Each structure stands twice: as C-alpha cells, then as structure tokens.
Simulated assay, not measured.
Amino acid sequence: MRIRSFEPRDAGALAQLFHAAVHQIARMYYSRAQVLAWAPAVPDEARFRARAADGRTLLVAVDEADAPLAYGDVERNGHIDHLFCRPDVAGTGVTAALYTALEAAAVEQGIDLLFVEASEPARRFFAKQGFSLIERRDFEIGGVPIHNYRMEKKLGR
C-alpha cells in the first residue's frame, strides 16, 4: 500500500468507494433510511474532481495495482470532510496510515487544529487518533433524522 495525491482518473473509484463504505460500514450503526438519505446513489465523479481542485489536500491510499483502497481530505481551514475506506480493508490499518499522511500535510500547511463531523463508526476511529469529542450533532437529511459528532484535535508545532 502507498499513499499518493488524488489523480482525476481516481474519481469514479472514489465515488464507488464512498457509496460502498456508507452502505456496508455505516449501515451497522445507522438505519436503512438513514443510510439511504446519506448516500442514495453513487455520487457523480465530477464532485470528486471538483473537491481536488478547490484547494484542499486529497490523498488516496492505493494497492500495488494503483487501485484506491481509501481516500481522505483536509481543507485549508483544517476541516476533514471525507475519510473513507473500502469495506474489505476496514480495520487493516490503511485508514490509519492515510490519516497520518493527512495530518502531516496539515502540519506542513501550518494548520494547528483539525476538526471533523464524524459518523458513528468514524467517531471511534478519530478518538483513537487523539481527537476530542466536542458535541453530538442531530440533524436531518431529506427529512430523515441522523447524527454525527463534532470532534477536534490540536496539532503541536
């Protein structure tokens, strides 16, 4: 496994990966209605290309054939918007390695605080990475109640 910057050809694989992660990993923590509200269909590839072009750092963990295993981003303000892995590699250390690379990129950019709205399964992951729980956030997507957790981590310099 290696970690590299996003390439436009990754967009389709990342869209599929996101959808699979929500439908196979998050479904263990959220109801079917919540999962369908969160990810009703595979997102348009253009959303991933646009993400990569808006100034955020978007990294991809890939296997020996350069196929994406996980991806994550950190925005210029320290917000981690996405951190998802393929369901078949969940719990293998791929996401932790990717997170470490994202944190290192944030430090290089002078970011001193990372923050995230973590899903139920991601909350445990981010806690292991040293994030503090700030609050549970209850909201709706398309009229379906769902929740996540605001978490943050101060980065040392």
Rank of each mutant, 00 (worst) to 15 (best):
L17Y: 00
H19G: 12
A21D: 04
V22M: 01
V22D: 07
Q24F: 05
Q24G: 12
I25C: 10
I25E: 00
A26N: 02
R27I: 13
M28S: 14
M28R: 15
Y29C: 10
Y30F: 04
S31N: 10
R32L: 13
Q34R: 05
V35Q: 05
L36T: 14
L36H: 15
W38T: 02
A39E: 09
P40W: 02
P40D: 09
P40N: 07
P40K: 07
P40G: 05
V42C: 07
P43C: 08
A46W: 02
R47Q: 14
R47V: 10
R47A: 11
F48Y: 01
F48W: 01
R49A: 09
R49Y: 07
A50P: 10
R51A: 13
A53E: 06
A53M: 10
D54V: 06
D54S: 14
R56D: 06
R56T: 07
T57V: 13
V60S: 11
V60K: 01
A61K: 01
D63N: 12
D63M: 14
E64V: 12
A67I: 11
L69A: 04
A70N: 01
A70Y: 00
A70H: 00
G72D: 06
V74C: 04
E75I: 08
G78P: 07
G78M: 04
H79C: 13
D81C: 14
H82E: 11
L83C: 05
L83G: 00
F84V: 02
F84A: 08
F84W: 06
C85V: 10
C85A: 15
R86N: 11
D88H: 13
D88G: 08
G91T: 13
T92S: 12
V94I: 04
Y99W: 14
Y99H: 13
T100N: 13
A101M: 11
A104K: 03
A105Y: 12
A105Q: 09
A106Y: 04
V107L: 12
V107R: 08
E108I: 06
E108C: 11
Q109L: 10
G110T: 00
D112L: 06
L113A: 09
L114N: 00
A118L: 03
E120S: 09
E120K: 10
A122C: 09
A122F: 03
R124D: 09
R124M: 08
F125G: 05
F126L: 09
F126E: 03
A127E: 15
K128R: 15
F131G: 00
F131V: 03
S132M: 12
S132D: 15
I134S: 13
I134C: 14
E135A: 14
D138T: 12
D138Q: 14
F139M: 09
F139Y: 08
G142D: 06
G143T: 04
I146C: 04
H147Y: 02
H147S: 14
N148A: 11
R150S: 10
M151G: 03
M151E: 04
